[in-house]
Design a protein around this nucleic acid. Structure first.
Lengths: 335, 335
DNA sequence: CTGAAAGCGCTTACAG
DNA sequence: CTGAAAGCGCTTACAG
């Protein structure tokens, strides 16, 4: 590996000068600048990022903490986050938490030793607020940016990017009601999920705002992860119980797909007998039959907000503590 | 941040001793060992990974280069790879290449400056072998391990983990033929994909091995990515052309789903009129209707092989240059 | 405009 | 068994 010192020797200047030229800092005479750059190019010099990180006290990587990357919506998010970071010339360190709180805090513990620029946590789990606030404070004093995606943690001092769940639920509800599907069920709340809780509250709020009779509506909980299998199970059970529900707002596209399969397997027609709206608007959903109608979580908007947050951080500006992203409806045939 | 020196001062020993205790190197008297460990725990000391990396010349991160993380099979792979690395206490740096060769080589260029332990490339793209061999050599001299997943690059000096495509295709073919679905088409080869090419060759080979009359079989190419939309398009076209194909071996589950949708939309019954086998055996595939029959790419086996490779590397043993993973069939109802 | 020197936080020959 | 010292490859006051 060719080092900065190699360049300096060859260009007959000090290492300080080479550093200044390459980082565009301080006044440098045009002739030495040219010479240094030429030598650097000629030798194919590339600055050692590890040494830079050590010296500067922070690196160019951002850690993304994900609840479960196998859920389609996190995967889409991961991709967009990577793109956003790439635009800022930052690298992405990925951590799959598998929905385990100990993995989260374990990571936050060693984060300061890793030379990270920041940490983005896209974890739906409900967590110990006090404890998190302590970690957040610690990371801040280290000059690291901690951001939450999908959960409102701004009260704990963590800039947060969340979806407008009331609007999202409203979109789903209106679609179902307009299609004559009533009463409704909310499919997939899990007790351990803060995101799930917020989304369910959004569902209730949207219902109430429309003056609907919520008494006939149902909540179908899951103890499982938010996967197709759980949806299949829960909806199958409800149907066997003889539920009157005719419209389902699902927590994810996977859940909606599972629920639809359960209905189909019991000889029902979708959406005629029971309609489904998913969440995430994943690519493949449009090719299921019936095609999934779904609330679009705007991963692009999230990525944009994230980029703005990191830009502000790099320019030492105050971060926006709460960004609310508006979802949209992708109307297809399952509702 | 509490540093090693803080621990040393407080324990009244030199920094060398603390380092030795914490890394289990050299003979240390039991009493100082105990004292050092106690002080370290008491102060909550955590070694600065950046400094370690600089000093040791390599870090604890492995970069995973992915063609397109939005494809389900890569996502599943990503998760397993992360798990495998975690077992070795290594971190995962994720790069989404978006199928662009310049991004690949751009990364390989700066990889040596990042203090990585290794690079895993799971990219299906056909690429410039000469150029790649040069990079591979360069990384090796830096003590970094470069591994290919899904593409046979062992001839270029890159340890490779690949699927046994002939077996995989054979599983799909036997399932289709046994069900009376004939002739067959292979759906989704793209010219730029080395993996796709290998898989198609596996399909041909399996066909030949069975003494089948390959003349009646078709190849349905895609210029697109391997997504549901491409499958929908290509199968729709073929059907409209009046193809005699009755069984489809698809490049991915997404493609199979798209193809099934096209058949369904033209009033055909699946699998009665035309049957489909996907690739990847993704979770949600079991809840599509009909449920996707699919070739299982054993992500666990891949992760295991990867773990073995990194373990060998850390113990300075010769890596196994080629690992072939046997796929299995997940039989459901689409074929 | 430029350089000598210190230092980021570690590890490891070398010496005792 | 333990320590003083050098050094990994950078950046940045400080001095001129």
């Amino acid at each position: 590996m060719v080092t900065l010192l190699d360049v300096a020797r060859r260009a007959r200047v000090s290492s300080a000068t080479v550093s200044r030229v390459l980082n565009g800092a301080g006044r440098i005479s045009e002739s030495t600048r040219r010479r240094v750059i030429e030598v650097a190019n000629h030798l194919g010099y590339q600055p050692n990022q590890v040494a830079k990180s050590l010296r500067l006290g922070r690196g160019r990587s951002v850690a993304l903490l994900i609840g479960d990357i196998e859920q389609g919506t996190y995967m889409a998010l991961t991709k967009r986050v990577q793109l956003a970071l790439q635009a800022l010339d930052l690298d992405l360190l990925l951590f799959n938490l598998d929905h385990r709180e100990d993995r989260l805090f374990g990571f936050l513990d060693r984060a300061p030793t890793m030379g990270l620029l920041g940490v983005v946590m896209a974890v739906p789990r409900r967590m110990d607020g006090r404890r998190l606030a302590r970690y957040a404070e610690r990371l801040r004093t280290q000059g690291m940016l901690l951001v939450a995606v999908g959960q409102r943690l701004n009260r704990l001092g963590v800039p947060s990017i969340v979806h407008d769940e009331v609007t999202g639920a409203g979109l789903a509800i209106d679609r179902l009601v307009t299609g004559g599907h009533w009463p409704l069920a909310y499919l997939g709340r899990t007790v351990t999920s803060a995101t799930g809780g917020a989304r369910y509250r959004g569902f209730r709020a949207a219902l109430t705002a429309r003056g609907a009779d919520t008494a006939t509506c149902e909540l179908w909980e899951c103890t499982d992860k938010f996967r197709a299998e759980a949806g299949y199970h829960v909806v199958g059970e409800a149907l066997r119980r003889g539920t009157h529900v005719r419209g389902v707002v699902a927590m994810s596209d996977e859940m909606a797909l599972g629920g639809i399969a359960a209905a189909l397997d019991q000889g029902l027609a979708v959406p005629r007998d029971i309609a489904f709206v998913g969440y995430g608007a994943l690519d493949w959903g449009g090719y299921a039959r019936p095609a999934l109608t779904s609330v679009l979580v705007n991963a692009d908007a999230v990525a944009e907000a994230l980029e703005a947050l990191f830009r502000a951080h790099q320019e030492a500006r105050e971060p926006r503590m709460l960004t609310i992203v508006r979802p949209a409806l992708v109307a297809r045939t399952s509702a």
